[in-house]
């Protein structure tokens, strides 16, 4: 009992330290690299020529938006997977992320909106797809497999819709197109990110507050009812909280591939105490985003946006996951 609790907390601390270390590298590496002392000085408010602008105006926004997006995707994906008891059931695999992205790009490029309105469109897109998937998957008793397959179909459709909108809007700007096709931190700005921060903070706290319900919901369709959980209400509320969080993240960074799918699953594989671990999954999401960003910006001759890297990592992880599911059954 006590050792398991210790494990959950020590993983939380290690992940937090991991985010700090990656955060330092995010601020340190780039066109010109700065050492720890310089970075700290700049963060403390000291004016250093060149460094101040690069760190405070370019790199810090990327870092903060990246952390927020990672936490949002990680917590939301983990909640989806726990409720639906299937690692494939995550907002990105099921098309919620792409749909939020499609609505956001529609709001920005076609309607010319910005700020909160874009987030509102993204949320509307995410919620709409979630409602469609879940109401169609209901039919003869709720089928999670049906919901996942339908989500995969919708995901492809929404990705096509994004491409379509980009063409209609004549978005010849490659970086803008990449942002909406795969997600990137390149246009991250801190102005207007307050809403994003508050959304992630409130919804993460809310989901953490419902940990006991999530634990009971993972026992199948029948036991939650007899244990006294209002299963329909609880599922809807928790899924909606997740959808909103991931949609707002998508409005800021575009549809990030595979982060919400990997974060929770990796976390549960590491901790292995049969728990829910929303906070750990959130930090894991942040770690995936930050390390992918660092790889994309520094490892190759060309710079790749973060979503391209998460997508590339996600594919083999999906294959590994499918193989491990088959081995377990066999």
């Amino acid at each position: 009992m006590r050792t398991r609790k210790k494990k959950e907390i020590s993983v939380l601390i290690i992940l937090f330290i991991g985010v700090l270390i990656l955060g330092f590298f995010m601020l340190s590496l780039g066109e010109s690299n700065y050492d720890l002392a310089t970075v700290v000085k700049v963060l403390m408010g000291q004016e250093i020529k060149g460094a101040s602008f690069a760190v405070m105006s370019l790199r810090l926004p990327k870092l903060i938006i990246g952390i927020l997006a990672g936490i949002a995707c990680g917590v939301a994906g983990n909640t989806f997977q726990v409720i639906m008891k299937n690692p494939l059931a995550s907002p990105d695999v099921m098309g919620v992320t792409s749909s939020a992205g499609a609505m956001a790009v529609f709001a920005i490029l076609i309607l010319g909106l910005e700020g909160v309105a874009v987030s509102a469109f993204a949320i509307a897109g995410g919620v709409l797809v979630a409602v469609i998937i879940f109401s169609f998957a209901r039919g003869n008793g709720f089928s999670i497999n049906k919901a996942i397959l339908m989500g995969i179909g919708i995901q492809a459709m929404m990705q096509a819709l994004i491409t379509f909108i980009l063409q209609q809007a004549n978005a010849y700007d490659l970086s803008k197109a990449m942002h909406w096709l795969s997600g990137s931190l390149n246009s991250a700005k801190l102005s207007g990110a307050g809403g994003f921060f508050i959304t992630v903070l409130i919804l993460t706290c809310f989901i953490q507050y419902r940990t006991k319900e999530l634990k009971v919901l993972s026992l199948g369709e029948e036991l939650p009812v007899t244990l006294g959980v209002n299963i329909d209400r609880e599922r809807i509320v928790l899924l909606m909280a997740s959808v909103i969080m991931v949609s707002v993240a998508t409005a800021y960074v575009g549809p990030l591939a595979s982060v919400s799918f990997m974060a929770g699953h990796i976390t549960r594989r590491i901790i292995k105490t049969g728990g829910v671990y929303s906070l750990q999954a959130g930090l894991m999401g942040a770690i995936i985003v930050l390390s992918s960003e660092l790889i994309g910006q520094n490892a190759f001759a060309i710079r790749f946006p973060v979503g391209v890297i998460t997508g590339i990592i996600g594919a083999p992880y999906l294959i590994y996951l499918l193989l491990s599911i088959r081995n377990k059954r066999g």
Partner: peptide, 19 residues
Amino acid sequence: PMVPESITVYDLVARGRYP
């Protein structure tokens, strides 16, 4: 009933205390 991934006997029995 559904067994959650990698849950120990103690933790599973403890879920009965939810109410």
